[in-house]
């Protein structure tokens, strides 16, 4: 097949889409659904800027996922973490720890941090660092990002 009909839930909204099979989830999110908060940084799986969550907790890469393979799946982007004007504890911690500079890595970094804590609510610093691999930040040296995950972990 060259196109596939899929039903994709993004931040709680169900979309019935007819997607060309060669399009990545990242393209469909950004170009077809206007969810531009998920970023392109490399397209080859290295930088994590395109990270989104499946079922609210598993981190995957938009750039290395075929949209056609996402039928029936539920995706959360960074924009879906805020609920009724209330930020997610990870988002709050990123602001409070000043873990954001240029902010381009932030959507992916925040989603990744949510996934880390979903799996292990009290990670050690070493575990946080190990699991932040795959999300490149060129601004912060990761110092304040690690601190933000630690702070969020105290609240979750």
């Amino acid at each position: 097949m060259k196109k596939r009909s899929i039903s994709l839930t993004v931040n709680g909204t169900v979309h019935d889409l007819e997607v060309p099979v060669h399009r990545t989830l990242l393209q469909v999110l950004r170009e077809d659904l206007d969810q531009v908060e998920t970023k392109y940084g490399c397209g080859t799986g290295e930088c994590g800027a395109c990270t989104v969550l499946v079922d609210g907790e598993k981190a995957i890469l938009g750039c290395l996922t075929l949209a056609a393979s996402m039928d029936g799946k539920s995706i959360t982007t960074v924009a879906g973490l805020e609920k009724d004007g209330q930020l997610h504890p990870v988002q709050e911690a990123f602001i409070e720890e000043h873990a954001i500079q240029c902010g381009y890595c932030t959507p992916g970094m925040v989603c990744k941090s949510v996934s880390i804590l979903a799996k292990n609510p009290k990670p050690s610093e070493e575990e946080i660092r190990h699991n932040l691999e795959g999300n490149i930040c060129r601004c912060t040296g990761y110092v304040k990002i690690v601190q933000a995950v630690q702070r969020a972990s105290e609240r979750i």
Partner: peptide
Amino acid sequence: MSSRVLPVFDLLLP
């Protein structure tokens, strides 16, 4: 060749 756009192919989903 592009890291943003995949080449066209046909998807088989057995």
